[in-house]
Computed example of a mutant assay.
Amino acid sequence: MVGDTEPGTVRPGGRTARVRAAVLQAAGDALAEGGFAGLDLADVARRADVGKTTVYRRWGTVTGLVADLLTDMAEQSLPRTETGSLLGDLKANAQLVRRTLADDRQGALFKAVIAAATCERRTAEALRRFYETRVAEWAPCVERAVERGEVPEGTDPHEVVRAVSAPLYYRLLTTGDHPDEAAADRAAEAAVAAAKAGAYVRREGGPHQEDPA
């Protein structure tokens, strides 16, 4: 029974873990192919070669399944790279984002989820948690840069990390073009330049900055 537990908050093992992996793979494929509107639990069950009852009992709704898919994607994403310089670290981050968005399946999947999040509350919350996890993974790169004196004290690490990926997503969503390596490097360079100039220093009395969108 689904109950009040959010999908993905309980980590199964053994056969249950294999079923979850198969279902999430199938859900990602279906999202990439047909978008959120075309996602159907029965179709996902067929693709994953598991019983419909299992899928309905564990995930309950399409939005519950998408929430679990985003949780899994955040956990499976590659860890941060620390090169010893903020520019090197953020270029690595930008190239990771670029490769994800340039991938035929992953790029289409993210576009579908982002589109759904504009009008579906639970999907929006799941997407926010996904980026919250990813931004928090890379924030220590900026914290180390503050310690090294590369950027000013009080620089908001979350804002800097978001500034790297934002133009890459914007390009994908507004033009349909996959960002290339040069675009990824420019995004990192711009974020570092702005950070060094103090653009991301927390302002006294300003909004709390630790809830990345």
Score class of each variant (00 low, 15 high):
Met1His: 12
Val2Asn: 08
Asp4Tyr: 12
Asp4Val: 15
Thr5Glu: 14
Thr5Gly: 07
Pro7Phe: 04
Val10Arg: 05
Arg11Trp: 11
Pro12His: 11
Pro12Cys: 03
Gly14Tyr: 06
Thr16Gly: 09
Ala21Ile: 00
Val23Gln: 01
Leu24Thr: 02
Leu24Asp: 00
Gly28Asp: 02
Ala32Ile: 07
Ala37Pro: 04
Ala37Asn: 10
Gly38His: 09
Leu39Pro: 07
Asp40Asn: 09
Asp40Pro: 02
Leu41Ser: 03
Ala42Cys: 13
Ala42His: 13
Val44Pro: 02
Asp49Leu: 11
Asp49Thr: 00
Val50Ile: 03
Thr54Met: 01
Val55His: 09
Val55Ser: 10
Val55Leu: 12
Arg58Ala: 03
Gly60Phe: 02
Thr61Cys: 07
Thr61Ile: 09
Leu65Val: 06
Val66Cys: 12
Val66Asn: 09
Ala67Ile: 00
Leu69Ala: 13
Thr71Val: 09
Arg80Pro: 02
Glu82Phe: 11
Ser85Ala: 04
Ser85Gly: 05
Ser85Met: 05
Leu87Gln: 09
Gly88Asp: 01
Asp89Pro: 04
Leu90Gln: 00
Lys91Thr: 11
Ala92Ile: 05
Ala92Leu: 06
Asn93Met: 15
Gln95Thr: 10
Gln95Leu: 15
Val97Pro: 00
Arg98Phe: 08
Arg99Glu: 14
Leu101Lys: 01
Arg105Asn: 06
Leu109Phe: 13
Leu109Asp: 00
Phe110Tyr: 14
Phe110Ser: 02
Ala112His: 06
Ala116Trp: 07
Ala116Gln: 07
Ala117His: 01
Glu120Gly: 03
Glu120Met: 08
Glu120Ala: 12
Glu120Phe: 11
Ala124Asn: 09
Glu125Asp: 14
Ala126Arg: 08
Ala126Gln: 08
Ala126Phe: 10
Leu127Ala: 12
Tyr131Ala: 13
Tyr131Gly: 15
Tyr131Asn: 15
Arg134Val: 14
Glu137Ala: 09
Cys141Gly: 10
Arg144Glu: 10
Arg144His: 06
Ala145Phe: 06
Val146Thr: 13
Gly149Pro: 07
Glu153Trp: 11
Gly154Ser: 05
Pro157Cys: 02
Pro157Leu: 02
Glu159Lys: 13
Val160Asp: 04
Ala163Cys: 07
Val164Ile: 03
Val164His: 10
Ala166Trp: 14
Pro167Arg: 03
Leu173Lys: 00
Thr174Pro: 01
Thr175Val: 08
Gly176Glu: 08
His178Ala: 15
His178Arg: 15
Asp180Glu: 03
Asp180Thr: 06
Val192Leu: 13
Ala193Asn: 08
Ala195Tyr: 05
Gly198Lys: 10
Ala199Asn: 05
Glu204Leu: 11
His208Phe: 14
Gln209Lys: 08
Glu210Asn: 14
Glu210Ile: 13
Asp211Ala: 12
Pro212Thr: 02
Pro212Arg: 00
Ala213Leu: 14
Ala213Lys: 12
